[in-house]
Design a protein around this nucleic acid. Structure first.
Lengths: 350, 350
DNA sequence: GTGAAAGCGCTAACAA
DNA sequence: TTGTTAGCGCTTTCAC
């Protein structure tokens, strides 16, 4: 058997204290950057830490502290399957983590409403909360609110849609440009040699994720499938009723639509439309998010492929990152990279 | 803010001891099913545990015990990128887990050799090791060896290829039948209306994963693409040289091969063949496992899609499951389900 | 500025 | 068969 690493025992603060010739309390003060230690002592301790390759045992530290992590998710308040699934994952993980000193909760704020989001962020009790995960639009007011959190030492991650201009510590979600590209490639390949128009159904161009997907989609269509004519986006604001109303007109004006990219939370409206109007031949459809509805559509042959992101992974990843940041511990990038899942009816989970 | 769960403090063994009117030591004995406790006392304690909804704090327990988990991976010894990647993941995770009381190591045994595998399993020191993850063929001798491990209280998981007839605790890997189906659907859709022959390149029909993929592939081809003629499998034994030698003859005999399903570790041989013979038009190719070579083939247009499983996820999942089993703790099924990843050049990670 | 000592939840001698 | 006690690695009073 090949031992990958020597089974050397890890050094503890006792070792540090001994080597640095100070007491445990002083080591602890240095470790936690607490004030009231002479500069030379700090140096001595840090030297011992470096020499011994000390790494703090977080479990023991948390035990001693009685520490409880308090993380809040801020989500859009509109109802769709993806959001429902995120909520379920948060609730489930919360009960799963009850015995791991971690409490999860969530707030809902009006979708596509930057001011409401900023207000919700500002309403966070910075003394109670250790981390915040935000799923919402990127605007100056939101950026300011994030800055406020960071100033109070709270770790912040953006979720699903990034807020890169803010001081958020990390982004948890897929590369949406790449997701759009993937959708484009799939739609193009599935259409083969056919020529015609492509309809892109989106939510709101205010949402960074929606915008990026459209960008990536257009890139690939322009490059690899110049014979396909991509129409301007239909903004459905993730509202099934609105989408159901908008679709008939659009498709009447463009009878040669042979492909549809449902890039946001518009699947319900789209499927209702299909149900009612039964277009023949049905356009090739690539949609987003694997949910009960889209699964059924895949099985029933209404959708051809679904691009997705694992909501469980999103939530677990956000929590792991917030915990690591709270502990000033490193994160495993590879584990936290959210995959762009491609589902056909044959590889759906379960 | 919506609190999902009341922030009630979790009960500790002190609470149990108080309620059951016994000492801490007795509670500990009951919790760990140690002998020497009167039946009535056991009942009292268990009652208190149930009443208070006690859940053991594993971190504290491990701290007290000085417990170190020792897990061994048994892998085939042939060299290919997928195995290299698994090894890397094991080594990386091992250093990452050094401070979490977990030691990982691996052994290599001759591929497709059940006796060698059984011998390697039997060579495991059952007093030193807490869990074993096995990637290898399923035969009676292997089953016996697994039974031997289980008899000694060691947790066993099968990795990548299942050993369902054995007493292994869990299987960590994809549903290979579904993976084969996915490959079939993708290949069929990408070929569109074209007619011709399909070549399936496999490793060994002794390997359950290879067999299952072929099964799933045939199901879909027969059902959805009856115009495509799937040839008998070419068994390459995951050996690049052998594959490179076999391919020219097969393709000469079947000049109308328009699609290839590279279902095992034969990508290197296949790509070498492409390099040398430059077939025009190149057949549509669906291959397995995202590796440096297959990534390059996707980007360069040699492969059209890659079905994959995340090697990091495989290893992390195996470790989490072995740890949970060792602690007699529940596992989160959803988190441990290995996805059948579909990669086009547009959605490859990085 | 620094140290001694108690304690987090649990386990493991050792007594009784 | 049961209880007492020390201790795992770390934090946190409270003295000095």
């Amino acid at each position: 058997m090949k031992q990958i690493d020597p089974p050397r025992l890890n050094p503890t603060i006792n070792d540090i204290a001994r080597v640095a010739e100070v007491s445990l309390a002083t080591v602890d003060r240095v470790l936690n950057a607490r004030p009231g230690v002479r500069e030379t002592t700090v140096k001595k301790v840090n030297r011992a830490i470096a020499d011994l390759g000390y790494v703090r045992d977080t479990a023991a530290a948390n035990l001693a502290r009685g520490r409880v992590y308090n993380f809040v998710f801020i989500l859009p308040s509109n109802k769709n399957e993806f959001l429902t699934s995120l909520e379920t994952q948060i609730a489930d993980l919360n009960t799963g983590l009850r015995h791991e000193r971690t409490r999860l909760s969530f707030v809902r704020v009006a979708a596509f409403d930057p001011m409401a989001l900023a207000a919700a962020i500002n309403a966070i009790d910075t003394r109670q909360v250790d981390g915040v995960a935000i799923f919402g639009p990127e605007t100056p007011s939101v950026r300011d609110s994030v800055a406020h959190l960071k100033k109070n030492g709270i770790t912040v991650v953006s979720l699903v849609a990034d807020i890169p201009s803010s001081e958020r510590d990390d982004y948890v979600g897929v590369d949406n440009v790449a997701a759009g590209r993937t959708a484009g490639q799939l739609l193009g390949r599935f259409l083969g040699a056919r020529r015609g128009k492509i309809l892109v159904l989106t939510g709101s161009m205010l949402a960074r994720d929606h915008l990026e997907r459209r960008l990536g989609f257009d890139e690939v269509m322009g490059q690899d499938f110049p014979d396909l004519d991509v129409l301007a986006s239909l903004e459905g604001r993730d509202d099934p009723d609105l989408i159901e109303r908008l679709l008939p007109d659009t498709l009447r004006d463009n009878p040669d639509v042979i492909g549809i990219y449902s890039s946001a939370a518009g699947n319900e409206g789209l499927l209702r439309f299909f149900e009612k109007h039964q277009p023949v031949p049905r356009p090739v459809v690539v949609a987003h998010e694997l949910t009960p509805l889209s699964r059924q559509a895949l099985v029933g042959g209404m959708f051809d492929a679904v691009i997705s992101q694992d909501s469980g992974h999103l939530v677990r990843s956000a929590v792991r990152i917030m915990r690591a940041n709270s502990d000033r511990m490193p994160i495993n990038i590879a584990q936290e990279r959210i995959r762009i899942d491609v589902y056909l009816k044959e590889n759906m989970p379960q």
